[in-house]
Design a protein around this nucleic acid. Structure first.
Lengths: 286, 286
DNA sequence: TTGCGTGTAAAGATCCTGTTACTGGAATCG
DNA sequence: CGATTCCAGTAACAGGATCTTTACACGCAA
């Protein structure tokens, strides 16, 4: 453990984090906050210290990547709070950083949805690494923003322009509309409303929320105006929506290249099913 | 933090993990392995102990959800190994569980891609919670929890479309009908009505409720219409229902390899500790 | 045979979705 | 800076699809 130091330093620098993260810290320990704040400043992360719990709604509005919280600050009801926050913001990395605790407490915290439990006193660098580790996955799959344009039916999706076109004419989609369309096109399967909401809005859908329906309607309207001969978004009653370009005569549009599993076409239903492919587990392949 | 204990017990139980996880442990400490193995057995997770590092390729073949590794076992080159594994399997939850370490080491491990760093000695339950937390986060973004289509008799089940087909013809199942069919197909055994109801509806069945019977009737009707030569759902008087494709001549349809992940086969439940660097174990590397 | 569990059927209650209208706030423009 | 336009989100309604309940007939088991 001697040569580690220099190596660690070297290994630490490459590609710190992709970009500035937004972090909130719920804590009251001045020393802890001071040290951590300095470190976060140096990293140029957006951060904010809170001296007490704020509602999940406020956290939603903050658009955070990670939340560090000392359960001791929350007092009674801390578990319920933790659970509520984790449930409401499934995409938020929640790290509990607090003083000595029992195994039972730690187990409970993690089970309620926390991503990590760090015991004080702790080195700020370590806490930051834990935050990065928790946030890392989330970004990995979220980042592939620069995708190629895709042709679906008569429509062209341009992720780089955040817009869809029929030939050269823009559909004039709003940001949200485009995100939903893009998600549906990429998924190529039935998506439940909750799924759509969570991946587009970034937090859990409230019970009874009809936003997704309304946006789907707006999307359909613009798609119909631009490409009247086709239908694109299909409703699965009791489930959700699915994207599949389909000409009015009923013929399904054969999708050129895109990924294999792509075609939810009824056409190749009987053909493909995974009888072969001995080494591959169909559940994981693709 | 005093009356927490009892609360923790209560809060810990609800909804353990979605399903059986596949875990590998690279460690040599007999005591540690013994305790952890017992816990994993109780949870019915697929697990395997490795006494030394295996190549990333082998890990890929194991299709793991999580990997627990004691860097001390790896010896020199442990950092490179950790980095290689994390890079090669971005979807794998990697937890380092080892003896006392320096902040620098922990920082380095996390920075290289590990999801968590647990210090021995540790409570097995806590380690398991850390695994769950790490896997939870992975699954969130790794939506492709898509199950493969399954062929049963003349019917094709398409979980991605929430629908069943006979060739290219949809059975036009409603969402609930499909869920029940899907559950029966996956279970591959007799399910009591209460079991079906609870897993589909999400809450306990009221005494005297006949909903399941009615849905089974609807299912049978649609299955019979689509595939008259076969019988699929069998009644076990006084017990419940069981799915088994069976041709009219009485011959039972031998189910080849279809839904792998689907069937919680007792076969790969027994994961024994293997001391030698293993080749491919049929239980793991399909 | 009797008693209980299951198959069958239909009507009513309930839930789900498409649609429209409206409000508050953000962004844009003059 | 104020006015205007645009957008996200909410509420409400109607029509339709689905689910639950109820009733009765049938068949299995003791």
């Amino acid at each position: 453990m001697s040569a580690e130091s220099s190596e660690a330093q070297a290994g630490a620098s490459p590609q710190r984090s992709q970009s500035r993260l937004r972090v909130a810290v719920i804590d009251r320990d001045p020393g802890f906050l001071q040290v951590l704040t300095n470190r976060l400043d140096a990293l140029r992360w957006d951060h904010r210290a809170l001296s007490s719990a704020v509602t999940a709604e406020v956290l939603v509005a903050m658009r955070l990547n990670a939340l560090v919280v000392d359960v001791a600050v929350l007092g009674p009801g801390s578990w319920e709070y933790l659970e509520r926050v984790c449930a409401r913001l499934p995409g938020l990395a929640v790290i509990v950083c607090t003083g000595p605790s029992s195994v039972v407490q730690r187990v409970r915290g993690l089970r309620l949805g926390a991503d990590a439990w760090v015991t004080k006193p702790c080195h700020p660098e370590e806490l930051i690494c834990v935050m990065e580790a928790a946030v890392r996955r989330h970004r990995r799959t979220e980042m592939p923003a620069l995708e190629a344009a895709a042709n679906v039916g008569e429509i062209t999706i341009r992720p780089d322009l955040y817009q869809a076109y029929r030939g050269t004419a823009s559909l004039e989609l709003t940001a949200r509309e485009f995100e939903i369309l893009h998600l549906l096109v990429q998924s190529d399967r039935v998506l439940r409303r909750e799924e759509i909401y969570e991946r587009v809005w970034g937090y859990a859908m409230a019970h009874g929320d009809r936003s997704v329906d309304v946006f789907v309607r707006k999307l359909r309207q613009k798609l119909r105006t631009a490409s009247p001969e086709w239908s694109y978004i299909h409703t699965h009653f009791g489930v959700g929506y699915r994207f599949a370009p389909e000409a009015d005569n009923g013929r399904v549009h054969e999708d050129d290249e895109r990924q294999e599993a792509a075609a939810p076409d009824v056409a190749d239903l009987e053909a493909d099913v995974i009888d072969e492919a001995p080494g591959l587990d169909p559940a994981f392949a693709s």
